[in-house]
Write a protein that binds this DNA or RNA. Structure first.
Lengths: 145, 145
DNA sequence: GTTTGTGCAAATCATTTGCACCGCG
DNA sequence: CGCGGTGCAAATGATTTGCACAAAC
């Protein structure tokens, strides 16, 4: 059973077609997506779903710890599911929008060190590297959502 | 003369009271501020300045490379001037909003390494650590802008 | 049957923009 | 003067919300 379904039951929330639809879509792959993009992908589906509902479901999933919200410098948010995915940081191509994940334990450690040296207890962090990937396959289309 | 004034002349832009006022305010200290906050601080000034003008001036300063725009996870932007300030990253207290700057050359290097290993040319990066500072002096007021 | 969820359209909120007037150069 | 700059109010665009209806339990 989907982890999201479990969460809904736990919390006494209802299991609706829309919620299952969104969950299936999101957990079927590991992409970085936007609310708008998700809406588009579900548009042609038999079960219509509204933008408001998308946002409401995404909020629940973030609350549930199943989804992570990212700010990549655009004026809309990106999401990615984190089931079966270790924490990682991102490199974003400013040309084509391609997003590459990476993780460097040494950076993680140095961040922890920086925080504690300054008297902070870490609750989270966000490290985004912006650049150009010059990847033939993807970098031809600019400003993909 | 203010660096901003030089920039304006260079570009053939006009030197107005509003522009000087904003520049003096911003460069008189090194704080992280918001457009709204800046407007408040300049409200009681003899020369009134409108919100639209604030935004327009901030955009010019960012373009001029005198100001940096930050996204700290709120729904409004933070700015800081970078004259005489080396690049640095930020630690933000989620309780009181206090912002501490730090720099770790090892992290910088590891970022460059991660980018090039993934075939990216770096154009910029943003590293924000979120946490709690538990600082008596500041951490009593929550959600400061 | 209740209570919670959904769709729609209207509301929000930071930021941007159109336009008529103002002031720097 | 002439054109860029400013203020105001209206526009924008992502996200949120109120409300009446629909669906889950």
């Amino acid at each position: 059973m989907l982890a999201f379904e479990e969460y809904l039951k736990e919390k006494g929330l209802k299991i609706t077609n829309q919620r299952l639809l969104v969950a299936q879509k999101i957990f079927s792959s590991h992409n970085h997506f936007t609310a708008e993009g998700l809406l588009d992908e579900l548009k042609d589906n038999k079960d219509r779903i509204s933008k408001a509902t998308i946002y409401r479901i995404l909020a629940i999933m973030v609350e549930a710890g199943l989804l992570e919200e990212h700010d990549f410098g655009k004026d809309y948010k990106y999401y990615e599911h984190i089931i079966g995915h270790e924490h990682h940081d991102h490199i974003i191509c400013m040309q084509c929008g391609r997003i590459v994940e990476f993780i460097d334990e040494r950076i993680e450690e140095l961040q922890n060190k920086a925080a504690s040296e300054n008297g902070f207890t870490i609750t989270g962090h966000s490290l985004n590297i912006f650049g150009n990937c010059l990847n033939f396959a993807t970098c031809e289309h600019k400003n993909k959502k």
